[in-house]
Nucleic acid binder design. Structure first.
Lengths: 346, 346
DNA sequence: CTGAAAGCGCTTACAG
DNA sequence: CTGAAAGCGCTTACAG
């Protein structure tokens, strides 16, 4: 049972569908009295806007695409939540896509979004090169990249200062006296990982006789939440089983951190006595882990909100220059680094 | 720069757009030779399907709506992931909506999805009464409810046997000798909570002289991930600060569990010596908490996949009877219940 | 301020 | 097997 259309509203009032359209769109050029009558009639008939028809006619849907690697990853889940909230304020729907960092899938999904005539796209790019995102550029679709840079800066971007966060974390380890530090990286394909690694190196360079061992998996291994988690565990077991094992480890992200903690537990090592651990990313319960984890927290909500704001800004004014926003991470010192228990860790 | 349409393909081949449509839709009634030529031309012109136009013409978009309370909740994030995977296999987009369990927002979003002409909707209903979901029924939109029942069973449903999980968990506490048990509930508005509570009561009824104290917050308090977490903490602090405090607590969901663990830590109590803790929901790192948490795990991936399968089944054959699938939870015995450390907890 | 009319890009009876 | 034509529900120059 199809709902009423402009035709029914127009007929009920003896006016044209053009007038109905204008009144309901809140356009000027229609008397406020008529506008009111149209709105009343629409309401009484239970009119519901047909977004598909609008999208076709206007060549632009009131919807945005969100292209991330995996909503199951708590980082992306929080970001998605924030974005969806802003989109809802703008009466836009959100199309959700998980690419698993796979370029083919990313390409497929972008095709789909362009076919939906989305107004814009927020994407966490799978690679540093523009690759499939070129489709968005050539189709002229407003795009914001999330957490990652694309070569040539063709899009608005929201970034986190990964380098700074990693540097501070590793410097903290150095302050605790550690000189043999391992960085468990998962993968170094994406820019966040690369920058975090660069931050580690900076901190090491600042310290006399400190040394960094980089441990990393391959792209294929670090797939999905479970995959990354298990990769972290596996890499940590390899590294920490050696006789000349490092005295501290930096974990490239929250999932890796959890994997490393499990490895440590399986090896029967104590944190921080036998091995100190710090990691990128925070979660609300990381202070409840055994031991509470010292981390560099990304401002996930702000990140999502900033990305959505950038996108809707551009939808309102497509002429503006390409902008990028860089957000700082926050260090939460807890116990896994070797610091004494705080009274109220947060 | 608009891409090519059927018109350009048709002109290039000297055929009608009807033929192009049939060929690209893979319909019979077009020679396989012609079909091939159409596909080749489409590919060489870089044709991209216009989903908005299709949606309008067919009165049905290749998209499904996913209406949940909050993707930031790990339970929903995992479910969303699974659903999106199945949808992608069917070349359907997923529209994501977070309702925060707010009926007005749910209603607003359903309006939006219906306006998008979604092929179907998967929804975790905010209430037991049909309420805003009536819109879906009267619009004839295939709907699957997730994790929760709606009065009168008007829709296909995927459920978890909450009662069983809770019953086993509390029975386990009773086996450990506990007689004063508290159930920290967050809210008992939704059916999962109610059924979990019923399961607790059954286990208590089976035990001589055991007693259940139900602690719950109000709807407004248990909002969002952070809200539920903090509510659990607050309720637990109140309960466990009393002199005649219970010796064990059942946590109604994963977020509440984390809140309770934090409360326990803040009160300086030891788990399980001073207070045993069990909870509904699992996460990949719950064995890394201090102490490892004994839980009833919902089969989240299966839940999402089953919901999506039910929906696409119905899209293929709308005539079939209303079905419901009930999935069992899995008990993971770890240490918070009082059991000794397992060698490899999972 | 309002209307008649064209058209967004498809699909689908209908006719051949 | 293929085509001409109508139409899904809107919006928007254009004309008055």
């Amino acid at each position: 049972m199809p709902g009423p259309t402009y035709r029914e509203i127009a007929q009920a009032l003896g006016v044209s569908t053009a007038t109905v359209s204008r009144a309901l769109a809140g356009e000027l050029g229609v008397s406020s009295e008529m506008a009111q009558r149209v709105r009343d009639t629409a309401a009484s008939l239970g009119y519901r806007s047909n977004r598909a028809a609008k999208a076709l006619r206007k060549q632009r849907a009131d919807a945005i695409g969100l292209v991330i690697s995996d909503v199951e990853n708590p980082f992306f889940a929080s970001v998605a939540r924030a974005i969806e909230g802003v989109a809802a304020e703008h009466r836009h729907a959100v199309l959700l896509c998980n690419t698993d960092e796979d370029l083919d899938q990313e390409s497929l999904y972008l095709d789909l979004m362009i076919g939906e005539n989305v107004a814009g796209v927020i994407v966490a790019p799978s690679a540093q090169e523009i690759g499939p995102l070129e489709q968005l550029r050539s189709a002229g679709i407003p795009t914001v990249t999330l957490d990652r840079k694309v070569a040539g800066d063709p899009f608005d971007a929201v970034l986190v200062d990964h380098r700074l966060g990693a540097r501070e974390l590793v410097a903290h380890l150095v302050d605790h006296g550690h000189r043999q530090i391992a960085a468990v990286m998962g993968t170094t394909a994406a820019t966040p990982s690369l920058e975090r690694l660069a931050g580690c190196r900076e901190a090491i360079a600042d310290a006399a006789s400190a040394q960094l061992t980089v441990i990393e998996g391959t792209m294929r291994q670090a797939v999905g939440v479970q995959g990354t988690f298990e990769l972290g565990e596996r890499l940590a077991i390899e590294t920490l089983s050696q006789r000349d094992r490092p005295s501290a480890v930096f974990c490239a992200n929250g999932l890796i951190s959890l994997g490393v903690l499990r490895a440590v537990r399986r090896l029967g090592l104590r944190v921080p006595e036998d091995i100190a651990v710090v990691g990128f990313d925070d979660q609300p319960f990381f202070d409840l882990l055994d031991p509470p984890l010292t981390v560099a927290a990304q401002p996930v909500e702000d990140l999502g909100r900033a990305a959505a704001d950038l996108l809707f800004d551009r939808l309102a004014d497509s002429g503006q220059d390409v902008r990028s926003v860089i957000l700082p991470p926050t260090i939460h010192v807890r116990r896994s680094c070797g610091c004494p228990a705080a009274s109220a860790s947060g």
